[in-house]
Design a protein around this nucleic acid. Structure first.
Lengths: 191, 191
DNA sequence: CCATAATTTCAGTAATTACTGAAATTAGGG
DNA sequence: CCCTAATTTCAGTAATTACTGAAATTATGG
């Protein structure tokens, strides 16, 4: 590997973190390299810059395509496939969250839903199913929220993020103005 | 392994998912078992029910303690350590998010901050650093939001979650009432 | 359609991670 | 303190995952 220093540090870090994010070193480094690159790279560029075998790069690119994290780009008068990350970081973030949900949450959701349908065979199983029900309720609440929020435009999500916990104040004001009875909670002065 | 059917399916599923969630099969299964159990279990209970070696269970429990995901419990007139998951699912969720942030986000945050301090040595490096800056900005925004929201009580977070994207409507109402110029965005009718 | 460039597949191997059993350490009751 | 139960450590091994090079496949310009 012979990369300029900033690029190299970033690429190596992404390689190390790769496994914590659900893929391997190769995939992490390839993604980092594409992310930083000013123009799309082809597989041989990547081989040259990262020093992996051609076949390993091919598999890494396949995996990244499976995650929808890279775009295939064609350059005029060049048969080779070139790859790029989305320019827009929001697109990357949204894809990452969506794909991780698909891999880390959805399977559990369907398994637990299935198990909730079955009749418990004992007191212990009844208790276990109760626990699963609690878990299912929490996951479903989070997923429902996510499914709604992901439809919002970036600018709106940004606004919500920048409000942080102050959003609670806005809600209280709404309750006051509308005259609805506020929730039975102490004043919001923790954040 | 000789568990009642619902418990067994849940435990096996958590074992399979373990690796996607940042730990191994043993740890996943141990956690699932403790989560479903009506009372705290000691290491030998776990060995008996899951069929792993005593030492493997010991390491798994150590790892779960490192994640702050289990509590050590002492039963009267029993020297052995017993373990339990928090009864409150919110505690589990909060811990999980906090620990994953610590492992998956914080290291990147500090590396990228470091790299942003250095002078780029070329045009390519300048571009790369620009990309890192975008990434840093997005991560910092998310982390700042998370650091505020995590301080809210469960009931308030639940309320925000259940509002979903309707929160945007509330914000617009606030802007109208206060008379502040609303953001330059089309009407919020996507969600 | 042919020649060849580009890419993918896959069997074999390397590297890493998970797991075990035996030995060592820790800790509690007497 | 000592004896023993409980737990942890760790070296060795098993299992899994990552990676390579060669061969096969796919695709394109001529």
């Amino acid at each position: 590997m012979d990369l300029p220093p900033l690029t190299q540090s970033f690429v190596l870090h992404f390689g190390e973190m790769g496994s914590r994010w659900g893929f391997n070193r190769t995939v992490g480094q390839i993604y980092a390299l594409l992310f930083l690159s000013a123009q799309p790279l082809n597989a041989d560029d990547i081989v040259e810059q990262l020093g992996f075998s051609r076949s390993n790069v091919s598999m890494g690119l396949k995996e990244l395509q499976g995650w929808n994290l890279i775009r295939l780009v064609h350059k005029p008068s060049d048969r080779r496939d070139h790859f790029a990350t989305p320019d827009d970081l929001w697109v990357i973030l949204r894809t990452l969250v969506e794909e991780r949900k698909k891999r880390e949450v959805d399977p559990t959701l369907s398994v637990v839903r299935e198990l909730m349908m079955q009749a418990p065979a004992s007191e212990a199983e009844k208790h276990a199913q109760g626990r699963m029900g609690e878990l299912l309720g929490l996951i479903e609440m989070l997923v429902k929220w996510y499914d709604e929020v992901k439809r919002l435009e970036n600018a709106r999500i940004t606004k919500l993020l920048s409000l942080g916990s102050k959003i609670v104040k806005v809600l209280e004001m709404k309750d006051r103005v509308i005259g609805r009875k506020p929730q039975a909670l102490p004043a919001a002065n923790e954040g």
